[in-house]
Design a protein around this nucleic acid. Structure first.
Length: 751
RNA sequence: UGCCCGGUCGUCUAAUGGCAGGACAGCGGCCUUUGGAGCCGUCGGUGGAGGUUCGAAUCCUCCCCGGGCAACCA
């Protein structure tokens, strides 16, 4: 079976079909179209990876286009931030950096053209009137009184709008579509509005600005985009896209495809909610390492490649979904595991004095940067001395059964160091452990036990006199529930109060002083860390925890928190519905010998019922078979059957077993459309059904002989494999085998 | 309540009428100088009811559930 890596998502399927048909002569041009009004987040990263990834995969190009059509919210600061983020993620747009605002003149010309075609008009209604006339989801809208203005008048008014003679909100340009459309987006969508506002790129050159529905499709068309990918909420806008592009664009034209946006559990994703977190100081800015903005992830220490592989792993589909943030964490661990040097740091130090180790003595022990299973070289020396700092959590005065670390009287190995034993516990007046005393087995330098005794625990440590003080910042999920927005008025009530813990008294081994400040480490047994790019300095080293290590110890200790989610509630119909069939339906069933279900389905479908009604008489005894075929096998786009004779004959041939259903399906379009005698088609193509048992037996023998393992599996109980054998046989016979007979033979032979 | 879209292991995603597969998570084991990594195993799914078919996750009907749409935002 194919793995997820080499199966295509639905967009790749579309592209490959288009490449095969030569629709765009093999060209693939995508685009990432952000509006420069905020920072990019991990959801955008999915879209970026999709669009740029597709271009990369199909040897195409991906444009970076700023959709800057609303001067009131946009800012050049965001343009730079977005460019930086896209670039950081590892994608290049080369010369293909565009701005919708560069197309304003061209878009204006398109609008004029549309007016000239009678497809757009200037509406002078107020905002309230427009809103009122739009109707509701259940009621159609009503036409604007300005809808029938002459082309000349529209042209004049639109020109005046551009020239600034009208005030904000006095007129808009609308597409003349359909105020009665059940799709509300199509009720004469607005194309241009007047805004006497300065645009960050075009200044005061314009006082009318195009709306998304107008600018976006036409910008795609201008740039010769082939596949325009957006999120699901734009689905209802697609008809506008098609309408506009068809109106002004020659083929091959771009097409819009929608996919599901990324949602992550334990966080919020929308720009507005992220903005609230920043503005109300729940976090410390857009690049707070707890934020799933690109800037936040970058500062936290995520690598671009980890985000790309995350996007790859979540995939692309059309079903709304909420991905597990654990998958993102897996992605960064997976990435860093292979590249991050291991060093030792102690987050919450506890001193242990090794009373048998000479005071003032220092040994520099060899410590490899990578474990045996990471194929990378390198090592450094770490100092060992009488006073050692270990993590408080690695000592337990009353250890449980499965606690393998240090406890009074017991041994633990100091990684790359010695095996030590705890001899004394020193407490303060409050009874807190403040220091330990112990001994060091001098024969175990490097960690090996010459006598072969087993030491189960190994912990990290730092020599007290050589320790480098650092601050560590431990991040946890920003929200304490999977879906912060669910069931509450204000999502901020679900904020996790412990999403950050700052430890000012941590220490690290001295070797890190010589490293590049951008180094991502694994602090052994703690997690992946790197220096905070904003707050860390040589005087005060500050480390962010990028992600914890997977910890199966935590899990065994902590009583499983209630991860038990309420099981999907049973779906019981609110009321038991009784289907009441109309007398006409029952009569039809009676008259033609149809099952009630079949009659019901047939009467439900007007087009199919009409087809049946027209030929029912002629069908005679065959009427039930014909009705069945029409309901279940006739393609939905068949409008009518002009010449029913051949079609009836085909059904008869299927009914009598002359041809298989598969073959009948195969030839039905030709038979219906051209009225060819089905017998002619069958003879010409040699499609007669094979029902002769000896022929089929020979085929079955052959297939079974070539698939002995599968046959064995079948015999041992994997009955689903019958489908495999049937498929093989149908393929071998060109679809002509009588399936019923064939199945019987296979089942008998596989016994 | 109108229209549109969707519903496959706990999560994400394949299977395009023919073997329900993969990844993450979980569980168990092996290994281990990181309670990491790795390796092996395992648990686990087609929302429901009918219909068509030799055969349905896939096609048809009805029901249930979820999402989107009534900004001069995108």
């Amino acid at each position: 079976m194919a793995s997820s890596r080499d199966t295509n998502n639905f967009i790749e399927e579309i592209i490959e079909r288009d490449n095969e048909s030569g629709k765009y002569a093999g060209a693939v041009v995508t685009r990432f179209p952000p509006e420069p009004n905020g920072y990019l987040h991990i959801g955008h990263a999915k879209s970026i990876a999709l669009n740029f990834g597709l271009a990369r995969k199909y040897d195409g190009t991906c444009h970076l286009r700023f959709d800057d059509t609303n001067p009131e919210t946009e800012d050049p600061e965001f343009v730079e931030a977005i460019k930086r983020d896209v670039h950081w993620l590892g994608y290049e747009w080369g010369d293909n950096l565009f701005f919708a605002s560069d197309y304003f003149e061209q878009l204006y010309d398109y609008a004029v053209k549309l007016i000239g075609q009678g497809l757009a008009y200037v509406d002078s209604s107020s905002m309230e009137e427009i809103r009122k006339n739009r109707g509701t989801v259940t009621e159609p809208g009503t036409d604007s009184p300005y809808r029938d203005r002459t082309i000349e008048e529209n042209l004049k008014l639109f020109g005046e709008m551009r020239d600034g003679v009208h005030g904000d909100g006095t007129h808009v340009l609308r597409a003349k579509m359909d105020m009665g459309s059940p799709n509300m987006k199509l009720r004469d969508p607005l194309l241009y509005r007047i805004k006497h506002a300065s645009h960050y790129r075009t200044g005061d050159e314009w006082c009318i600005y195009p709306m998304y529905d107008f600018a976006h499709p036409l910008s795609d068309a201008i740039e010769n985009i082939t596949h325009s990918l957006c999120t699901l909420e734009f689905e209802n806008n697609r008809p506008i896209y098609d309408w506009l592009v068809d109106a002004v664009c020659e083929s091959p034209r771009p097409y819009q495809y929608e996919f599901a946006r990324l949602n992550l559990n334990y966080t919020v994703m929308s720009k507005r909610k992220l903005l609230r977190l920043v503005e109300e100081k729940f976090v410390d800015g857009w690049d707070d390492p707890r934020m799933y903005t690109i800037a936040g992830l970058r500062r936290r220490g995520y690598t671009p490649s980890s985000i790309r592989s995350f996007a790859e792993r979540v995939g692309v589909a059309r079903a709304n979904s909420r991905s597990d943030v654990g998958l993102l964490e897996y992605s960064i661990r997976d990435d860093l595991n292979a590249i991050a040097p291991r060093v030792m740091a102690v987050l919450r130090p506890l001193r242990i004095e090794l009373t048998n180790y000479d005071e003032g003595k220092v040994e520099w022990l060899e410590a490899p940067y990578f474990p045996h299973d990471v194929p990378k070289e390198g090592s450094r020396k770490v100092p060992f001395s009488r006073n050692i700092l270990i993590d408080r959590s690695d000592f337990k005065e009353n250890p449980g059964k499965k606690f393998y670390r240090l406890s009074p009287g017991n041994e633990v190995r100091l990684r790359y160091g010695y095996v030590i034993r705890c001899t004394d516990v020193i407490k303060n007046d409050e009874g807190d452990v403040v220091e330990l005393k112990g001994t060091c087995d001098l024969d175990t330098r490097g960690g090996d036990t010459p006598d072969g005794r087993r030491v189960r625990g190994t912990i990290q440590w730092v020599s007290a006199e050589h320790a480098i003080p650092i601050e560590t910042r431990l991040y946890d999920r920003l929200f304490s529930v999977e879906n912060p927005e669910e069931g509450v008025e204000d999502f901020t009530v679900n904020l996790n109060p412990d999403s950050i813990e700052i430890l000012s008294g941590s220490v690290a081994e001295p070797s890190i002083a010589n490293d590049d400040p951008g180094t991502r480490y694994q602090f052994e047994r703690e997690g992946y860390f790197w220096q905070d790019p904003e707050d860390s300095s040589p005087d005060k080293l500050v480390f962010n925890r990028i992600v914890m290590l997977k910890d199966s110890w935590e899990k065994t200790v902590k009583a499983k928190p209630a991860t038990i989610k309420p099981r999907a509630k049973e779906t019981v119909p609110k009321e038991v519905r009784t289907i009441v069939d109309s007398p006409a339906t029952l009569k039809m069933a009676e008259d033609f010998g149809l099952s009630v279900e079949l009659a019901r389905q047939l009467s439900k479908d007007e087009a199919k019922k009409a087809i049946f009604d027209a030929i029912a008489e002629q069908a005679g005894e065959l009427s039930a078979a014909v009705a069945n075929w029409i309901v279940n096998e006739l393609p939905g786009d068949v409008q009518g059957i002009d010449n029913p004779g051949p079609f009836l004959k085909m059904v008869a041939m299927f009914d009598s077993g002359d041809i298989s259903q598969r073959i009948a399906r195969q030839i039905q379009v030709e038979v219906i459309e051209s009225g060819t005698d089905p017998e002619t088609v069958v003879d010409r193509e040699g499609l007669a059904q094979i029902s002769d048992p000896s022929t089929l037996e020979a085929m079955a023998d052959d297939i079974i002989a070539r698939n002995t393992e599968k046959a064995e599996l079948y015999r041992s109980g994997k009955k689903g494999l019958i489908g495999f054998f049937m498929g093989q046989l149908m393929q071998a016979s060109g679809g002509k085998a009588n399936p019923e007979v064939a199945r019987g033979i296979i089942e008998k032979k596989l016994g």
